[in-house]
């Protein structure tokens, strides 16, 4: 690929990146191992790391690689953790996919419901708990139950988690 084509391709990706999910950004399939995720991350780092373009005279190109690379780091950080990868895949497989392409932005919904945030003390527990609440709001009981169970594993005997789980059980049982 000659230089001008390469530059044009990079600028195109930076414009499209807000519509891409993490799997698309890293060009990998769901279920990929941590080892292969890392390989993909290193390959993309060689291509898009901002340092590769440090002395470029094209400010638009520099801005484009910054945008792309920050999203690559974010995608790598989320997908390289197997449990987060599973959660993320569920998140983008449901309704409103376009609004959930960035892992944290979904959890953000709970920034406004701070009391829920404080129910858990570990960061992972908090995340699962919050995902559970979101699933519950979407009436996705299976996903809610799984997330609360994950949260409970991290924080056994947490009354807030137990309460949510018992709520789900009473809804599910009569069937």
């Amino acid at each position: 690929m000659d230089n001008a084509t390469k530059v044009a391709a990079i600028k195109k990706i930076s414009r499209a990146i807000d519509r891409m999910d993490y799997f698309e950004i890293l060009s990998v399939r769901p279920g990929i191992s941590s080892h292969d995720i890392r390989k993909a991350f290193l390959r993309l780092s060689r291509q898009y790391h901002p340092d590769r373009f440090f002395s470029s005279a094209d400010p638009e190109l520099k801005e484009a690689v910054h945008k792309i690379y920050k999203r690559i780091s974010e995608a790598y950080h989320i997908l390289s953790d197997p449990s987060r990868q599973v959660l993320y895949h569920q998140q983008i497989s449901g309704p409103d996919r376009d609004k959930k392409l960035r892992y944290q932005s979904d959890v953000t919904a709970s920034s406004t419901t701070r009391r829920d945030d404080l129910a858990c003390t570990t960061p992972q527990g908090k995340k699962y708990f919050s995902l559970g609440l979101t699933a519950l709001r979407q009436k996705n009981l299976g996903a809610a139950k799984m997330n609360f169970k994950l949260a409970l594993e991290l924080e056994p005997d947490n009354p807030a988690i137990l309460e949510q789980l018992s709520k789900i059980d009473t809804v599910v049982k009569p069937r």
């Binding site: 920050k70 780091s73 974010e74 790598y76 944290q104 953000t108 920034s111 406004t112 945030d117 960061p123």
Partner: peptide
């Protein structure tokens, strides 16, 4: 509330919505 955990590759960003 943790936004970006340690040992995350940089550059990186996170967004939060405040109401």
């Amino acid at each position: 509330e943790r936004l970006i955990s340690r040992n995350t590759p940089i550059p990186v960003e996170q967004t939060r919505v405040f109401s």
